[in-house]
Structures are given as structure tokens and as C-alpha cells.
């Protein structure tokens, strides 16, 4: 097990470096001068050169990458051009809110997905299966930002039950698990949960179907085992793959929250990314993407290790 974990961690290092390289290059595929957002339109060439030197844009690219990487490793992702504050602290504060949203959505999406997937796989080709698969297909096909709008129309505009935007009293930095705040979380969390719900339903349905058609299930039933015990074996066999898919989905929710956060003005990393894009705040854009991608890589690593620890077949391969 330790060897597996060590090998898996070593394998992550080149990935992390390449992710950093991609994030670094993002600024350099940008058309135009990266300083365009802070330079006044009538700035002199001299001032432009000074700023370019101050930000290090005048050095060769590999040197810039090395310096940037070294600073990033020391927790310095530069300063936001728009606000002047350190990028890392801006990103970390926003990520906290995105984690809140992702966890709430995961609780809804994972439990519904597991439920629908298990009953659909168990009652394959019955009406229960058809209903559950239809819900799953709708879940993976719906443009979630539109679903968010529709939920706002129903529950905020027409019924006036829940707030349409924001994160409640205190804005972005005063989250608490009380009703005054949770009210604001309900609609974005439901919206975020539909895609993982659909994907987990489909995965678990397929897994359950496969496992139920295997010989050992037949043997368990022949042995006279009660159906609830057979069910327990099905869950045990489906768990490693299902967990891996859930981990990946959690990563997608953390990294892909920009559309939903924009619809609900939820003050997380997605909304931060949105403002970084439209203010052409390149250090902030770069830093946010780097942090989110690293979270995703880390989550993948954890998923692999957890999966290997509960499924002995993986370690051997």
C-alpha cells in the first residue's frame, strides 16, 4: 500500500508542474499587452517599460516561468491588478464559499444519485428504471445555468420563498450554518447538484446491473442468502468505482462553479474568475485557475488512494 501511495505521489509531480506551465502560459497567449488593464491610455513608453520591469514581463519566458513558479511554491501568486491585494488571499477566501456550495450540492446530488442508481439497476427494465434513467438524462443534459434561472423564476420571482442572489448577511466573508444564510444556499446547491446526480445515477445503475449479472450473486442467492444481504454485497462491489466517480464530480463542482456562481452572484472562486476575466486582471485569473486545478489534482490523488485502500485489486495492477 505504501509503495502504491508513494508511486502515485511521484506520478503527480510532473502533472503539477505541467499544470503550472499551462496556467503560466495563459497570460502569454493573451492578445495584447498584459499591462493594458493598469496602464493609463496616455501612458508614456518609459512608464510602460518601468511597469513591465516591475512585473518582470521584460525577461525571457523560461526565466519568468522559473521565477513565477518559485514564488508560487512560496505561496506568492502576485497581486491582483484590479484591487492590489495578494492573489492567494483573495482566492482562498473565495474558495471557502465554493467549498460550502460544493459540499451542500454533493450531499443532495450524491444521495439522490446513489438512490436512483441503485433502484434503477435493481429493477432494470421496469418503470422504476425508466423514471430514474429519465431523471438522470435530464440531469446531465440540462444547461445548469438555465436551470438556476428557472429555479429563481419559480421560487424567488413567482413564489417569493427564497432569495435570488448573494450569500446572505455579511456577504462573502461571514458564512454561517444558520437559516439566515442557508436560505441563500438552497437554490445554488440544488442547481449544482443536478449534473453529479445524473452522472452518479447512470454510473451506479450500470455498476449494479453488471454486478447483479455476475455468477457470485447467483451463488449467494443459491446459498439462500436473503435479498438484503445480496444487496449489501452489491454495494460493497460497487463502492470503489462509485466513490471514484463521486470524487471526480466533487472536483468538477469546485472547479466548474463559474456559471452557477455568476447566475446566483455566489461569492466563490467562480465569481472571482468571472471578474478577473472581465477586468483583464491576469495575475488573479492565473492564480485562481492554478489553485482550482491544484485542488482538482489533489482530489484525484486522494480518490485514487482511497479507492486503492478499499479495493485490493487496484494495488496489484
Amino acid at each position: 500500500m505504501l509503495v502504491y501511495v508513494a508511486r502515485r505521489i511521484v506520478y503527480v509531480i510532473p502533472i503539477v508542474l505541467s499544470v503550472a506551465l499551462v496556467c503560466f502560459m495563459l497570460v502569454h497567449i493573451t492578445p495584447g499587452d498584459p499591462l493594458v488593464a493598469i496602464l493609463p491610455a496616455d501612458a508614456s513608453q518609459e512608464l510602460a517599460n518601468q511597469l513591465r520591469a516591475a512585473y518582470g514581463f521584460d525577461r525571457p519566458l523560461p526565466v519568468q516561468f522559473g521565477l513565477w513558479l518559485w514564488r508560487a511554491l512560496n505561496g506568492d501568486l502576485g497581486h491582483s491588478i484590479a484591487t492590489g491585494r495578494p492573489v492567494l488571499s483573495e482566492v482562498m477566501r473565495a474558495v471557502g464559499n465554493t467549498v460550502t456550495l460544493a459540499i451542500a450540492a454533493a450531499m443532495i446530488g450524491f444521495s439522490l444519485g446513489l438512490f436512483f442508481g441503485l433502484i434503477a439497476g435493481y429493477f432494470r427494465d421496469t418503470w422504476i428504471d425508466k423514471v430514474a434513467t429519465s431523471i438522470a438524462i435530464a440531469g446531465v443534459s440540462v444547461p445548469h445555468y438555465w436551470l438556476g434561472m428557472v429555479l429563481v423564476i419559480i421560487f424567488s420571482v413567482e413564489l417569493n420563498w427564497l432569495p435570488a442572489v448573494g450569500a446572505g448577511p455579511g456577504g462573502s466573508s461571514a458564512w454561517g450554518w444558520d437559516w439566515e444564510h442557508i436560505r441563500y444556499l438552497i437554490l445554488p446547491a440544488i442547481t449544482t447538484s443536478v449534473i453529479p446526480m445524473g452522472i452518479i445515477t447512470r454510473t451506479v445503475r450500470a455498476l449494479t446491473g453488471d454486478i447483479l449479472s455476475q455468477d457470485f450473486v447467483e451463488a449467494l442467492r443459491a446459498k439462500g442468502l436473503h435479498e438484503t444481504h445480496v444487496f449489501r454485497h452489491v454495494i460493497k462491489n460497487a463502492a470503489p468505482t462509485a466513490l471514484a466517480v463521486m470524487g471526480l464530480q466533487l472536483g468538477y463542482m469546485l472547479g466548474g462553479s463559474i456559471l452557477i456562481e455568476t447566475v446566483f452572484s455566489w461569492p466563490g472562486s467562480g465569481l472571482l474568475l468571472n471578474s478577473a476575466i472581465f477586468q483583464r486582471d491576469l495575475p488573479l485569473l492565473q492564480g485562481t485557475i492554478l489553485v482550482l486545478a491544484l485542488f482538482f489534482v489533489l482530489l484525484n490523488l486522494i480518490v485514487d488512494i482511497v479507492q486503492a485502500s478499499i479495493d485490493p485489486r487496484i494495488k496489484r495492477s
Binding site: 510532473p14 505541467s18 499544470v19 499551462v22 468538477y252 476575466i277 491576469l282 486545478a293 489534482v297
Partner: peptide, 24 residues
């Protein structure tokens, strides 16, 4: 395949928005 792996390290929505946001 190792180059492909790098792009798998990004959630697809994030990758699309990162490139699109950088390109304009």
C-alpha cells in the same frame, strides 16, 4: 498520452473558461 494527461488535470468547464478568458 502524457500531454493529454495534463489537460485531464483541469475540470473541463474551468479549462474552457480559462482558455476562452485568456484569449478574449
Amino acid at each position: 498520452m502524457r500531454t493529454v494527461d495534463v489537460f485531464y488535470a483541469f475540470p473541463s468547464v474551468l479549462l474552457a473558461i480559462a482558455i476562452s478568458g485568456a484569449l478574449g
